[in-house]
């Protein structure tokens, strides 16, 4: 596996997991999660993780640099992005304190990916936790996108997840992913199998076929990417 590809998927997985932790923090503290805001944050954090993994490498020192630099870069963007942000809506991260929250979230995601999945410490459990966290923003983003596609406003998208729904979704994702690794240890296939079960559950509970189809990839894609990171060097 080339170093560029490894850094790329490492960046995707770490950024998704970081965003999951951040989104959970938002719903726990009853602050809204906007689709545009998440997209911008994802882009900036991903660029930081990817470029540092590629140019400096991975490990303790690059992890610390990444965890600090990414949120600081995002904060600078956030502070000067008035022309592209509706300031009546996007007021959440104006406090410097949120940089600390993002640093902690990114450090946890980086540590989980690098120390437990890449270096394969701890077996299936940290792997399932990382993939569940990585799948959550995809699932959450998909639900928000459905609202937007249906003609909803930005404010409507913030209502797709409550704190209870977010943690319940994470728990379901974790059970499916951990179960898949338990029953079928090899290859990438278990991720899509877990995704299919997720899709079937959603159809039974009233989702459309398209919605169910997308959910296969909500779990399948992060599972496959994280699986490639196992022992990746």
């Amino acid at each position: 596996m080339s170093r560029i590809w490894t850094a790329f998927i490492f960046g995707i997985i770490v950024t998704l997991a970081m965003n999951a932790l951040d989104m959970l923090y938002h719903v726990v503290t009853d602050t809204a999660v906007h689709l545009n805001y998440v997209a911008v944050k994802f882009t900036i954090i991903f660029a930081t993780v990817f470029l540092i993994a590629l140019v400096i490498g991975r490990g303790k020192t690059p992890g610390i640099v990444t965890s600090v630099l990414g949120p600081v870069a995002f904060y600078f963007y956030y502070s000067v992005a008035s022309p592209t942000l509706d300031r009546s809506m996007f007021t959440i991260d104006e406090a410097v304190w949120y940089v600390v929250v993002h640093v902690i979230a990114l450090a946890i995601a980086y540590l989980l990916a690098q120390s437990f999945v890449v270096k394969q410490k701890g077996g299936r459990l940290p792997f399932a936790i990382l993939v569940s966290l990585a799948a959550l923003p995809l699932y959450w983003g998909w639900l928000m996108a459905l609202v937007k596609l249906g003609g909803g406003l930005d404010e409507d998208t913030t209502k797709v997840m409550t704190m209870g729904a977010a943690f319940l979704s994470l728990a379901i994702l974790f059970v499916l992913i951990y179960g898949a690794t338990w029953f079928c240890k090899k290859g990438h296939f278990p991720g899509f199998a877990a995704g299919l079960v997720f899709g079937i559950i959603s159809v039974i509970t009233g989702a459309t076929v398209l919605d169910a189809f997308v959910r296969i990839f909500v779990i399948g894609i992060p599972y496959v990417l994280a699986h490639q990171l196992k022992g990746a060097a």
Partner: peptide, 10 residues
């Protein structure tokens, strides 16, 4: 599941 490729080794 039983027919998937072996786990990639370092």
């Amino acid at each position: 599941c039983g027919q998937t490729a072996p786990v990639e080794e370092k």
